[in-house]
């Protein structure tokens, strides 16, 4: 076992790992941060997306030891300091961008990275930006709306109703 330390949501954290311990397992089992979900085993579904050093990655396909010392942000670190929902989270609630909630953490993390690189995306840019995140409930309609709204655009006018 190897002790791995990272800065997770602004706090230095450590947990014991095997070589095969994935970042997702490190966060969920090592640190008890279960908001990051595992929806597949082929790096496709995106439920496990977190930010490593500011970049969105699929935590189920990265070994914990490979990102030791990194700065990691998970869904648990996305709310405002006062505990209120952050802009992206609030947009997802406002526009009903989630139903069962299982893919939601990955959607929020991908969205926040997407908007950092492209603050006013078009509908098509949003859809392409989300292609690595699968949702079975929403048909993406309200997720796309939420992303557009989080970027400050008039999502209701842009979406069919």
């Amino acid at each position: 076992m190897t002790k791995v330390t990272m800065t997770v949501n602004g706090i230095s954290q450590s947990a014991e790992t095997e070589g095969r311990t994935l970042l997702s397992a490190y966060l969920r089992e090592g640190l008890g941060l279960t908001g990051t979900h595992i929806g597949c085993d082929t790096s496709q579904c995106g439920a496990c997306v977190v930010h490593v050093d500011g970049v969105a990655v699929k935590s189920c396909s990265i070994f914990a030891q490979d990102v030791a010392g990194s700065r990691v942000t998970t869904i648990e670190g996305m709310a405002n300091e006062d505990g209120s929902l952050g802009v992206v989270q609030q947009a997802f609630q406002d526009h009903h961008g989630l139903q069962c909630g299982f893919c939601t953490a990955g959607m929020v993390m991908t969205t926040s990275a997407l908007l950092k690189g492209n603050p006013r995306p078009t509908e098509q840019e949003v859809r392409h930006g989300l292609e690595g995140n699968i949702c079975r409930c929403t048909g993406y309609h309200n997720i796309v709306k939420a992303v557009l709204a989080a970027s400050g655009q008039d999502a209701v006018a842009m979406a069919a109703e």
Binding site: G35, E76, M78, L85, F92, G101, A105, V108
Partner: peptide, 17 residues
């Protein structure tokens, strides 16, 4: 607006996993 969203959006849901 959905009250269940808050826990899902903050990573504090209680799924079996």
């Amino acid at each position: 607006k959905r009250r269940e969203d808050v826990r899902f959006l903050t990573g504090t849901g209680n799924y079996l996993h």
